[in-house]
Simulated scan of single mutants.
Amino acid sequence: MTYTIAMAGKGGTGKTTVCGLFIDYLAKAGKGPILAVDADANSNLNEVLGIKPALTLGDIREDLAHADIAENSPIPPSMTKKEYADFKFSSALVEEECYDFLAMGRTQGKGCYCYVNDVLREQIQKYYKNYKYLIVDNEAGLEHISRGILPPVDQILLVSDCSRRGIQAAGRIAEMIRQLDLKVKAMRLIVNRAPGGALSDGISEEIVAQKLTLAGVIPQDELVYEYDSAGKPLVALPESSAVKRALAGIIQKLELPA
């Protein structure tokens, strides 16, 4: 059975950094095979992982949506839309040593995308079962999960920065998840960029007020800034870095499948 973990949080919290380092930890711990999916409209998970972007599922969706009206359709006459989608899907899958990577790509344009979303759903459902873990970097709205394009989620990790407004935003996302009745088995909060790796009394009180379960705290780490400024993939951070050590401790407490 594939175990699905979704990361969610408002922009600027370091969610994608946490997601990339989470994937890196599982891969190095021999937890593969892993399918990493970038479902955030502002796609940059590949930069954290240090891999080149490829064809996105959004690109495939646009091709399929306009195939019937285009003067020069990209679909060969001998292929159906589903056959073409299957062919293009394999091109979008970036295969790394310990994980594979898919980018959902940009949000869809005008018109009805019900059919092409159904095609993408079928493609993902067919592929993801070959993996032990599915790790998804989502935007705050969890659009692809709520629409059923991505599989059901076992665990959602909400990522917030160390601010009262950030915790309140995480609380609103948690409430939305409850209203959507996504039937997740667990939902926890990771507080990122905490000064000294500690929470103030006010932030701890806000976590309780928002009815959030704290999974752990990641300290502010200057190495993250240095690597990002130099254009280095953050997975290349030394294992001794504060952020990697803190995240490893959090993951070990999540009781993930062996």
Rank of each mutant, 00 (worst) to 15 (best):
A70S: 14
G30T: 06
K31N: 03
G20L: 02
Y84R: 10
D24K: 12
L26D: 00
I34K: 07
V48F: 14
E47H: 11
T13P: 02
D40V: 09
N72L: 12
D40E: 06
V18M: 04
E62C: 10
A29N: 09
S73T: 15
S73V: 13
I34H: 00
K52A: 08
E62S: 12
V37M: 14
A27M: 04
L21T: 01
A65Q: 13
A36C: 10
L64C: 05
I69Q: 13
L57H: 05
A36F: 01
H66G: 08
L55D: 02
G50N: 09
L45D: 01
A27R: 06
K31I: 06
I75F: 08
G58A: 15
L35E: 03
A27V: 07
L57A: 04
P33R: 09
F22N: 01
L64I: 09
S43C: 13
S73P: 15
G20P: 04
L26F: 00
L26Q: 03
A41R: 12
I51P: 15
P33M: 06
D63F: 15
A85G: 14
P76V: 02
A65K: 13
E62Q: 14
A65C: 10
I23F: 00
A85R: 10
A54C: 09
V37R: 03
A67K: 14
N46R: 10
K15P: 00
A85I: 10
P77G: 03
L64M: 10
A70T: 10
N44M: 11
R61T: 14
N44A: 11
D24W: 02
P53I: 12
K31T: 01
G32M: 14
D24Y: 00
T80A: 06
N42Y: 08
C19E: 01
Y25R: 13
